[in-house]
Design a protein around this nucleic acid. Structure first.
Length: 247
DNA sequence: AATAAAGCCAACCGCGGTTCG
DNA sequence: TCGAACCGCGGTTGGCTTTAT
């Protein structure tokens, strides 16, 4: 009996895995037609399917749902995927909700196979560029602010030294105990401990990002630039191999 | 024609959030 | 309030198919 097999499977934890058969598909479809979606863990109890609730849900959502759109991703859908991915990142389910009939798994697989290491669309490139420019501007402002505070501090110390020389009074010690606000102190400490090269890297931490700011670029250099950018986005250090795990 | 490499996709796994008793 | 069960999501894997050599 199916129920006997199911009970045994449940008790032993021996859920069936691997590709679904036509019979399993039919049982699951009938279950959803009668019970509706949800309560996936009760599918095995009511149908005799030796599949976990998780597996049943996945099979239904990704393959059996009647509103699924079959066939290749169209150019329009591809555009939507690229635009939404530029905005949302790897939030596949959110992207899928904007593409009726497509599943998050389908979109995820499509992205991986078509765009994972490919040159981004113009819009996606513009977005990436914009992010870099904002980051650079923010770092530039922080750098200038830190420099300004450093100069102020140096001027104050010079004035103190001059006053000390003029009055021969130990006021310097008193003045040195006055501290700038905490956050300024942190910046001063950070920048103050840097040599000029480190400060420059703080402002402009990677060659690819620097190059972005120098647009427009010759077409030949642009490809190299985007390669650099992708490596940066992927977090590569130049020694990575294989294709598992990274986006 | 044989075979290695790459492409593709269905399915599984682990984790985090939500619901319920 | 807390813990177990359930659900959904993103990442990863395994295997089949197609393409290149």
């Amino acid at each position: 009996m199916a129920m006997d097999a199911m009970s045994s499977a449940v008790l032993q934890g021996a859920w069936r895995k691997g590709p679904w058969t036509a019979l399993e598909d039919r049982l699951l479809t009938e279950y959803v037609q009668q019970q509706g979606e949800g309560s996936w863990n009760s599918v095995a109890k009511l149908t005799g399917l030796r599949r976990s609730g998780k597996s049943c849900r996945l099979r239904w959502v990704n393959y059996l749902r009647p509103d699924l759109k079959r066939g290749k991703i169209t150019a329009d859908e591809e555009t939507v995927i690229l635009q939404l991915h530029a905005m949302l990142g790897n939030r596949w389910s959110a992207i899928a909700r904007c593409l009726p009939g497509r599943t998050d798994n389908e979109i995820k697989n499509y992205w991986r196979t078509h765009f994972k290491k490919a040159r981004p669309s113009r819009r996606a490139r513009a977005q990436l560029l914009h992010q870099y420019q904002l980051q650079q501007q923010q770092q530039h402002r922080q750098y200038l602010h830190a420099l300004h505070l450093l100069q102020q501090q140096q001027q104050e110390m010079q004035m103190q030294l001059q006053m000390e020389q003029q009055t021969h009074q130990p006021q310097v010690m008193m003045m040195q105990q006055q501290s700038p606000p905490e956050e300024d102190q942190a910046v001063i400490t950070t920048v103050g401990n840097m040599n000029s090269m480190e400060a420059a890297e703080c402002y402009c931490p990677c060659p690819a990002a620097s190059a972005v700011l120098d647009l427009p670029l010759p077409a030949d250099d642009e490809d190299a630039l985007w390669d650099s950018l992708w490596r940066l986005v992927d977090g590569e250090d130049g020694s990575s191999g294989g294709d598992s795990g990274e986006y």
